[in-house]
Amino acid sequence: MALTENDLRHLARLARIRVEDDETGPMLAQLSGILGLIDQLQAVDTRGVEPLAHALDLEQRLRPDEVTETDRREQFQAVAPQVEAGLYLVPKVIE
């Protein structure tokens, strides 16, 4: 399966990765190569095989519904770039 430059731009946008113009060529080739490997996997007949959700053959462990965490906001916010009034500040997300 061949990837187009539009696909690449769309994926980069979804993943918030900046791709420079001179990078698109090599990146397209590399990604298409990976998709080639996946095509080989897709070619295997998997009828009757249950999809694998996890590599470990184990069940999810559950914890009791108890509050075990204390307020450690000060410690967490000490390493945050910018805080105010208890809030983490980030670049504005709406205009």
């Binding site: 910018q82 208890g86 500040l89 980030v90």
Partner: peptide
């Protein structure tokens, strides 16, 4: 929260 943070957004 999009108000009052000098052009930044506040996250709770």
């Amino acid at each position: 929260l999009h108000e009052d943070f000098h052009g930044l957004s506040g996250i709770d």
